[in-house]
């Protein structure tokens, strides 16, 4: 609006900086491998050709926290694993997001005992919880799209 109408088609698109940045963040959100239990199998399946998460620019599962934007905690986190999880989260560069995949990561699930953290939100701040035991790949992809909607709504003023 505005400049395109006056100058004609220059092959230029104008938009808000906020929208451009949020769009680029959602279209190349590299997840970090954090497969801890059976949810990891569904996460692999979501990655593989049937469900194909690369449709959303997520073809790369990074084994290194320094190259990833999204941590998918897939499985139950034991109290011994919790410090490792937090350390990997701290090593991820900003901006970063966390999906708690499955009941165990969300609230402890069936493992209501001394050894399992009752929800990974006690260790890292979680953006999206995906329910299911384990969730199907569609559910994980729905969770990722929910996260994308959340990221698209982020405001420039909140980052600075």
């Amino acid at each position: 609006m505005g400049v395109e109408q006056k100058l004609g088609n220059l092959g230029v698109l104008t938009t808000k900086l906020e929208e451009a940045i949020n769009w680029s963040r959602t279209r190349a959100m590299w997840p970090m491998l954090f497969g801890l239990a059976c949810c990891a199998i569904e996460m692999m399946s979501a990655q593989a050709s049937d469900y194909d998460m690369s449709r959303f620019g997520m073809e790369l599962m990074r084994p290194s926290p320094r190259q990833s934007d999204l941590m998918i905690v897939a499985g139950r986190v034991s109290r011994k694993m919790a410090p490792v999880l937090r350390r990997l989260y701290d090593q991820m560069p900003d901006p970063k997001w966390v999906i708690a995949m499955g009941d165990c990561a969300s609230c402890g699930g069936v493992f209501n005992n001394y050894a399992i953290v009752q929800g990974v939100d006690e260790v890292v701040p979680v953006d999206v919880y995906v329910a299911g035991c384990p969730p199907r790949p569609e559910a994980l992809i729905h969770g990722i799209l929910t996260l994308h909607a959340k990221v698209r709504g982020e405001k420039l003023a909140d980052w600075a």
């Binding site: 005992n113 001394y114 050894a115």
Partner: peptide
Amino acid sequence: PLRKDYPLGYEEVQ
């Protein structure tokens, strides 16, 4: 943890 007098550590379910 495997001692019989060790608390199971249940948390209240939400």
